[in-house]
């Protein structure tokens, strides 16, 4: 495997980490208005992701940074091209991040309601818009011979991309419900289980259609790996659906994680060796070859990743281990 392929895989892994990990904490934010009316219930929900959401978001920051370092042309084309959706994502993430910290700082129902709303919107928009962005990268957008995006904002709002956005949104919400089901007790857990059961069918339908749609729109002959990953994704969610019915919360969560990861993997496998497809002229597409950094930079980055990624994974796993217990609504346990 050469360095450019390796870094394509690494970027895919980072985005996968982001969609899985931040997926469930976006989900918790999305479900905030539905998880219970009482303040303790909402607090319990927020506190389940309290120790981890910030680190989960770093997966996105790192995905962005890695794209910049390994494929600067991709970074430049993507973020300048998808300017307004990215602006919305940033605003959403800003609002969401401060919501958790600010919410509990003033004892006033209106204050709480304000930050609950921003946490909800801030959690809803990113998976939706990232879904739209990834679908567009695959489907192809107008890119000229200088690698610059030449379409407008509304180019990005096609049916396939919006469908992709809805799929990502539904999967995040489902994963959030399953996470809450594992991490809470009492009324919050019961509500979360009900929501998970209700979301699993629509999520399954959306994912199946999206996976098939992705395979048939992007190429004349789909990549074998994309078919494999896509199939695993659909089957995993089907199994997850059965696990939800059987009230096996742990299995349901694990299988949904697998479904999301394989869906992202399938997207990247369909994209390969392109990173952004040009609808103006296929020859203008950005590929892992014409968008990448020099061998020297990729080598240095590979060494750094080989040293530090295992360390990072180790302390992140430890973090999840420390906070493995369910959150009760006991006030002493809550920070937010």
């Amino acid at each position: 495997m050469d360095l450019q392929v390796l870094w394509f895989v690494l970027v895919a892994v980072l985005y996968t980490g982001f969609f899985v990990l931040e997926g469930f904490d976006f989900g918790v934010g999305i479900l905030l208005p539905f998880i219970g009316r009482k303040d303790e219930e909402k607090r319990a929900a927020i506190n389940t992701i309290g120790p981890v959401w910030d680190a989960n978001e770093v997966w996105l920051v790192l995905a962005g940074g890695a794209t910049f370092a390994a494929f600067p042309q991709w970074y430049a084309t993507l973020f300048s091209g998808f300017y307004l959706p990215l602006l919305l994502i940033l605003v959403a993430l800003i609002l969401r991040g401060v919501s958790f910290e600010f919410r509990g700082k003033v004892e006033d129902p209106r204050w709480h309601a304000t930050w609950d709303t921003t946490a909800f919107i801030g959690s809803l928009l990113p998976p939706l818009l990232f879904g739209v962005a990834f679908a567009n990268m695959l489907r192809g957008v107008p890119i000229d011979g200088n690698m610059n995006y030449t379409g407008g904002f509304f180019n990005l709002l096609n049916v396939y991309a919006l469908f992709g956005g809805l799929t990502f949104l539904a999967l995040s919400a489902l994963l959030g419900a399953l996470f809450l089901n594992l991490k809470t007790a009492g009324s919050v857990q019961e509500t979360a289980a009900k929501i998970a059961a209700r979301l699993s069918v629509p999520s399954f339908v959306l994912l199946t259609v999206f996976v098939v749609w992705t395979l048939i729109t992007t190429r004349s002959t789909p990549a074998i790996l994309a078919i494999v990953f896509g199939s695993i994704s659909v089957l995993a969610l089907l199994a997850g659906f059965i696990a939800v019915k059987a009230q096996r919360g742990g299995f349901a969560f694990g299988l949904t994680v697998l479904a999301i990861a394989m869906n992202v993997a399938s997207i990247f496998a369909s994209l390969f060796p392109n990173v952004m497809v040009s609808s103006t002229d296929l020859a203008f597409s950005l590929t892992i070859r014409n968008a990448s950094s020099s061998v020297n930079t990729l080598t240095v980055m590979s060494i750094v990743v080989a040293i530090f990624l295992p360390v990072v994974l180790a302390y992140q796993v430890w973090n999840y281990w420390v906070f493995r217990k369910r959150i009760t609504a006991k006030v002493e346990d809550l920070h937010y």
Binding site: L62, G65, F68, A69, P72, Q73, S293, S294, T297, M301
Partner: peptide
Amino acid sequence: GDIFGAPLAIEG
């Protein structure tokens, strides 16, 4: 990008 991206990614 060949130079500036690397420290940014390593920072992350």
